[in-house]
Design a protein around this nucleic acid. Sequence first.
DNA 1: ACACTAATGGCACCGAGCGCCATAAAGATA
DNA 2: TATCTTTATGGCGCTCGGTGCCATTAGTGT
Lengths: 192, 192
Amino acid sequence: MSSRGRPVATSHAQIEAVAFRLFAERGFDAVTMADIAAEVGVGRRTLFRYFESKNDIPWGQFDRTLDGFRAILAESPDDLPLADAVQRAVLRFNEYPADSDPPHEQRMRLILETPALQAHSVLRYADWRDVIAEYVAGRLGLQATDTLPRTVGSVSLALAISAYEGWLADPGSDLQTLLEETMTSLRDYLAD
Amino acid sequence: MSSRGRPVATSHAQIEAVAFRLFAERGFDAVTMADIAAEVGVGRRTLFRYFESKNDIPWGQFDRTLDGFRAILAESPDDLPLADAVQRAVLRFNEYPADSDPPHEQRMRLILETPALQAHSVLRYADWRDVIAEYVAGRLGLQATDTLPRTVGSVSLALAISAYEGWLADPGSDLQTLLEETMTSLRDYLAD
DNA sequence: ACACTAATGGCACCGAGCGCCATAAAGATA
DNA sequence: TATCTTTATGGCGCTCGGTGCCATTAGTGT
């Protein structure tokens, strides 16, 4: 319970705050881990104990939110059509408080507009897709490794990213509306 | 048309062949660019003139095939429903000669099973998605940057990757069949 | 023989990332 | 108070991907 040992010198939140400021000022690629460490007032080596890689910094504590995502899916009524249940869960997962820090828009813009982070995102999102695959598999009596559950996970991710791109491209738009429109338009496209 | 200047010391194909052999022997991560250069008998610096990065080696001359993909789409009859036209084009794009070298299966297994390459693939496939977006935009009288064309590109990619994963997981399966099944099962999923 | 051209490859450098380990700073114990 | 234990820090040195610079090589054309 008590806090033995040397106390921590920083925190994920502090590093994140400093890093986002620097990224905004100079751009992601132009900021080195040494820069961030100096600004935080901590050793470079220590940064790598808080974040596995520079690419992981913009993601913050994404992993932790997956439990919430699982919970949202678990709450879905079983009589709701599968595709609707998934769609609603994706919508709810992407409700973010307007005052989050750093701002959700800034975080997503960084991730979606920086090539190195676009690439890295496929690794970070693997677990998110698995959450969907698990749910779909459960509803259909399949394994999460079967093709359909995995496909639904991948396609849901592709749709969500498309919606985010639209959101970032149009400052006045509403993310929830775009997510819904994107999913509906895919249905129309496939059904025509 | 004559060939002035110092003659080339190697070729994309030779580098690719050597690299694939080493990757198979030791695994992608355990092979350094210096290893490949030594085996090819060329300077390390030269490798980076043939391939932008180590991650690009497994992709070979992927860019060149995009013109073929564009041509396939351009040939599609206009009265074919849009989703069917795209589906058929994706199928045809993924017809590979059985004797390609390195084998298509080995290439895709490397790309889809190596985390660093999974991540990098999102950058390589951006142009592929754009080809689809251009076609969809043309058929619908939209811009290629609009949401629906981009969404169709992303979703088509997600489906193709799912199909490839299934293909690699089941040695006896047929890629063309799996591609078709994956696309059809998504329609069922969304329509239920 | 001499100019021209284009590819090579060595060298030095940067930045991410990691293993190793000495050290700092706290609580616990005597 | 002095010592022990625990835990985080951070410096050092290394590997590897990647790049800019530039001298050198090996051809073709005159």
